[in-house]
Computed example of a mutant assay.
Amino acid sequence: MVNINGTLIQSEQANLSLENRGYKYGDALFETLKVVNGKILFWEDHYFRLMSSMRILRMTIPMTFTMEFLESEILKTVEENNLLAKSSRVRLNVDRGEGGKYKPNKDSNVGFNIIAEPHDNPFYGMLPFEDYTVDLYKDFMMAPGLLSGLKSNSKSISVLGSIYAEENGWDNCLVLNTNKSVIEALNGNLFLVKDDIIKTPPLEDGCLNGVMRKQILDALKNNPNYKVEEASISPFELQKADELFISNVIIVIQSIGKYRKKSYGNETAKDVLQLVNGKMRLS
């Protein structure tokens, strides 16, 4: 079952209009959520990121789009799919409705849809990494700016980069911005570890304003064992690093095992994962 603007219907009956602006122009935003035993993890951060993104795209936010309303619609969808007592991956999609060309019609109505599917792992654990291999994706680059940091439906670089990675037998690729700095992976934010320094690209470089990125930075804020830097990362730094890891809300951390001829460890990543798990238990 899927949720279309509050109505639950069978997925095979969920027809999208050819005039839908999310389909025609990518005029849409989405949040990928992890729901465990009826709790949406980091829901407040997801909600405020969505509202901020809608304002940046100048979408009219319906009065009904309160945090409580959207939370109830998400959990309603999860329950209808018999996932309330399990772990699930949920996509909340918001679009500007129908009408207009590039310029939306004034009477276009913002709508939402929600899809829930089972997710095997309810817990955040360290994933196998020794053979997890990445390389740079250099065919297209991200232009830094507010739009590049949004979780919008315009994901051509992630799509093309994923195809490129598969063609070359890699698990993922790292994305560059137009200044030739490494900003993120295809499916999450990037962290680089060198000695006791944990470094991640700043939002100004064009990386996604990731919810799990925020949790990791918060967990490390007052930790005396590490120095955290939000600073640009050059491709040259990758091969000098002790560790590289990717973060998103579904997996939390995926350590990178290999980049070109370099192999990495994951001791710091394991420590960071424990800190995030501890932060979750306290919330």
Rank of each mutant, 00 (worst) to 15 (best):
D218P: 05
I256Q: 02
Q254A: 09
Y47L: 06
N93H: 14
L92H: 00
V175L: 15
G26C: 01
Y47K: 07
D27L: 06
T178Y: 08
V90D: 01
F191K: 01
P122Q: 12
L176F: 03
K194W: 06
E243L: 10
V276T: 12
R91S: 10
N177E: 10
E204F: 13
N37V: 07
L75R: 05
N189Q: 07
Y23T: 06
G265I: 11
T60D: 01
M212H: 03
S53P: 07
M1E: 06
E68V: 05
I198C: 05
S11P: 06
E71A: 10
K151M: 11
L190G: 03
L41N: 00
P122K: 04
L92M: 08
K138L: 13
L146D: 05
I216V: 15
S283H: 01
D135T: 10
M212A: 11
D45H: 14
R281I: 15
S11M: 10
T7V: 14
T64D: 08
G169W: 14
L33A: 04
K221S: 14
I74N: 06
L92F: 11
L176Q: 02
Y25A: 14
K24R: 14
Q13G: 12
P122F: 00
L57K: 06
N105T: 07
K138M: 15
S72I: 01
I114P: 08
G111I: 12
S158Y: 13
L84W: 02
A269T: 08
Y137D: 06
L238M: 11
P235S: 13
I250F: 07
L75K: 07
N121G: 04
M280R: 15
G169A: 09
N109Q: 14
A14T: 02
K180R: 15
N153G: 15
T7Q: 14
L127V: 07
K258W: 09
R260M: 13
T32A: 13
I253L: 12
Y137V: 04
F42W: 11
I197H: 07
N248E: 12
V276C: 15
H119R: 07
K76G: 13
E230P: 08
N5G: 15
S156C: 11
D195L: 13
L244W: 05
S53L: 04
D196M: 12
D171I: 08
E80P: 03
K261Q: 13
C207E: 00
E71R: 06
G111K: 06
R21A: 14
N113V: 00
N179L: 13
I233K: 01
G6Y: 01
V211N: 02
R49F: 10
S247W: 00
M280G: 09
K103W: 05
I157N: 02
L174N: 01
M142N: 03
N82R: 07
D242G: 13
L92D: 02
P122G: 12
N177K: 02
D196I: 14
Q254K: 11
I198Q: 03
P104L: 12
K227M: 14
T200M: 13
E31W: 03
S263G: 04
M51G: 09
M54H: 09
F30W: 04
V110P: 00
K227P: 07
L217Y: 01
S52R: 13
N168H: 15
P128Q: 02
P224I: 10
K261N: 15
K24M: 11
H119N: 13
S158C: 04
D205N: 13
N105C: 09
P118Q: 04
S148G: 15
P202T: 02
V36L: 08
R91C: 07
P224R: 12
V252N: 09
Y102L: 15
